[in-house]
Amino acid sequence: MTQFDLTGRKALVTGGAQGLGAGMAEALAKAGASVMIADIQTDTGQKTADTLRDAGAVAGFVPLDVTDDDSWQNAIATTVSELDGLDILVNNAGIELSGLVIDLDPQDVTSMLQVNVLGAALGVKHAFRAMRPGGPAGAGGAVINISSVAATIPFPGIAGYSATKAAVDRLTRVAALESGKLGYGVRVNCIYPGLVPTEMGMKLADDMVTLGLWPSAEAAVGDVIGLTPLGRLGEVSDMADAVVFLASDAARFITGAGLPVDGGMGM
């Protein structure tokens, strides 16, 4: 057994139906964890869980609206019941709505605050309640929040998104402190992913063109690569492996930290 072996651990991944979330769920499963996919995309989420099961993993799906307290309570209860516990929460669900500050849309900002900040906060709340001593899982564990390189550097066209991801960083650190002081036994960390060419990532590049900030999506992506010392975009596996690390015993003395997984872009 290695320190990265998650055999016997039970994980819940929000926004796990596709993109980064699906990749993180797959990596956790390959490391030995049982995985519950949680998403508002019921059909896609169920297919992702089916794919994991077909590959030999213990996996399931539960519908989850991360902005709804009752939905979180149901998702956590279902996970604990079906997987016989909960040791890992990956707060991955998020949305990005681009826009210039001069054209700021209050509804867009409100939507991002609800999903990216409130959604992550409710996840931490219910993970703590389940994982702390006396909770229905009760064995401690790890929460990994997904922030963004946008929380660490200025990038045009995404002020609202950047603000919400910076809030995720602060939430992570306060939650880690509270968990330690109150004896919950739950480590709380976050990662800052760089740009990954998922559907969400490429839409961002297209948005930069629509906003008049770059002449083409290719130019926008090229400039991001130019800002990245390792000279490439991120891959889903880069982010997923970082999540496995933070969930594992290899990170047993790490809490309240933000791990850049951005090829050096945010340094």
Rank of each mutant, 00 (worst) to 15 (best):
V13F: 04
Q46Y: 03
T14V: 04
A38K: 04
D5K: 03
C190D: 13
S111L: 02
I146W: 02
K47H: 15
Q41E: 11
L52N: 11
L230I: 14
G56R: 11
D249R: 12
Q46A: 15
V186E: 04
V109D: 01
M1L: 10
V124H: 00
M202S: 09
W72T: 12
D69I: 05
A130N: 13
P197T: 09
D54M: 14
A59E: 10
L211Q: 11
V58D: 13
A31P: 08
D206V: 04
T210Q: 11
Q3Y: 09
G45A: 10
G16Y: 04
G180I: 07
G201Q: 12
V174H: 13
T48A: 15
A77P: 09
T198C: 09
V143L: 05
M265K: 14
A175T: 11
T152R: 07
T164C: 01
L100F: 09
A176W: 05
R187Y: 14
A240D: 12
P154W: 00
E26W: 01
S81I: 01
Q18L: 04
A175H: 08
V80G: 03
M208I: 00
D70P: 08
A38T: 03
L64N: 07
D206Q: 12
D108N: 07
N145K: 04
M112T: 00
L171R: 04
G123I: 01
P193D: 07
M208P: 00
A49G: 14
T255C: 02
